[in-house]
Simulated assay, not measured.
Amino acid sequence: MQARQLPSGRGFAWLGEGLQIWRRNPALLTFASFGYLLLLILVSVVPFLGQIIASLLMPILSLGVLNTCQAIDKGRKAGPDVLFSGFQQNLPALVTIGLIYLAGSLLVLLLTSLADGGTLLKVMTSGGKIEAEVATSTGFTLALLIAITLSTPVMMAYWFAPLLAGWWKLSAPKAMFFSFYACLRNWRPFLAYSIALALFGAVLPGILLGIVGLASPMLATLLSVPLPLLLIPIVFASFYANARDIFGEPGNAFEQP
C-alpha cells in the first residue's frame, strides 16, 4: 500500500477540487452528503443501541459518499442508491472499523473523566447540558484539551480506513494503520487543509453574513439557510479529493450493476 507524500500547497487545492466535483452533479452529491448525515442522526436517536449502530454504519455510508464522488469524477451514471454501495464492499472490515473507532472514541472520553469527573463524557453520550461555571472551570478545559489531543490519532486512523477497506479490500487493522501512516506522512498538507476548511466553512461565510446583516438582518438569515446545502457537499467531495491525491484509485473501485 503506497501513500504519496504531498507538498503543503496540495491541502489548499483539495477544497477547490471538491467544488469542481460538486459542480458536475450538485443534486446527487447533495443527496448523498445529507442522506449520510440524516441517516446517522435518525439511527443515533434510537434508545440504547442507536449510537452504537450509527458508529457501525458510519464507515459503510461514508464509503457510499466516496463512491458517489468517484462516479461523478469519472463521469459514470449513478443514482441515489450509490449511497448504500458500501454494503457490497468488504462489509465485515467496514463494520470492524466502525467498532474500533467507537471503542477508541469512548476510551478517549473515559480518560477525560480523570480531569473533569465525567462531565464531558456525560455531555457527549447523553446530551446533557453544561452550566456556565462548569464550562469555564479548569477541569473541563483540561478535559477538552485531552479530548482534542487523544482523539486526533483516532481520527487519523479512521480518515482513510473505509476507503482502503472498500476499494483495496484491506482488513480493518491494516486499513486503519495505513490511514494513520498516510495522515502522519502528510501532516503539512492536512494542516493547510484544516486552515482552508476553517476559512471556507466558517470565517468567510461569517464575514459575508455579517456584512449582509448590517444592511438587512432578514436577508442574512435567509442566506444562512441554504449555505450548508452548498458547503457540506463540497467538503465531502474534498475528502474524496485528498484520498485520490494520496492513494490514487484502484481502477473502477465500484461499478453499479
Rank of each mutant, 00 (worst) to 15 (best):
M1T: 04
Q5C: 08
L6G: 00
P7R: 09
P7G: 10
S8D: 07
G9V: 08
W14Q: 03
G16Y: 03
G16D: 11
E17Y: 00
L19N: 01
L19I: 10
Q20S: 11
I21A: 06
W22R: 04
W22V: 12
R23C: 14
R23M: 15
R24C: 11
R24K: 15
N25I: 08
P26I: 12
L29I: 14
L29V: 09
T30S: 14
F31N: 02
A32P: 07
S33V: 08
Y36A: 02
L37M: 15
L40E: 09
I41N: 12
S44W: 09
S44F: 10
V45A: 04
V45E: 08
P47Y: 08
F48D: 03
L49K: 02
I52N: 01
A54D: 09
S55Y: 14
S55P: 07
S55D: 15
L57I: 12
I60A: 14
L61I: 11
L61Q: 10
S62H: 12
V65Q: 03
L66Y: 13
N67K: 02
Q70P: 00
A71M: 13
I72T: 12
A78T: 11
A78M: 14
G79D: 15
D81T: 13
D81P: 01
V82I: 15
Q89Y: 05
N90I: 03
A93T: 03
V95G: 05
V95A: 08
T96Q: 10
I97Y: 05
L99V: 10
Y101L: 08
Y101G: 07
L102Y: 15
L102K: 06
A103F: 13
A103D: 05
L106I: 04
L107C: 11
V108R: 07
L109V: 01
T112L: 09
L114P: 07
A115M: 09
D116V: 03
G118R: 00
T119V: 15
L120E: 05
K122Q: 12
M124E: 13
G127Q: 03
K129G: 03
A132P: 08
A135K: 07
T136M: 13
T136P: 00
S137G: 15
T141G: 15
T141D: 13
T141Y: 08
L144V: 14
L145C: 06
I146R: 07
I146G: 06
M156E: 09
A157M: 10
Y158L: 11
W159R: 01
W159D: 03
P162W: 09
L163D: 00
A165G: 11
L170T: 02
A172E: 02
A172K: 01
F177Q: 05
F178P: 02
F178V: 09
Y181W: 03
A182L: 05
C183L: 08
W187I: 13
W187L: 12
P189H: 06
Y193F: 15
A198K: 00
L199E: 02
F200I: 14
V203A: 14
P205L: 10
P205G: 04
I207S: 06
I207V: 15
G210Y: 11
L214F: 10
P217Q: 05
P217E: 00
L219K: 06
L219H: 01
L231Y: 05
P233M: 09
V235M: 15
F236L: 15
A237K: 00
F239D: 02
Y240K: 01
A241Y: 06
N242A: 01
R244C: 00
R244S: 09
D245C: 06
E249N: 07
N252M: 13
N252P: 12
N252E: 14
N252Y: 14
F254V: 05
P257I: 06
P257W: 02
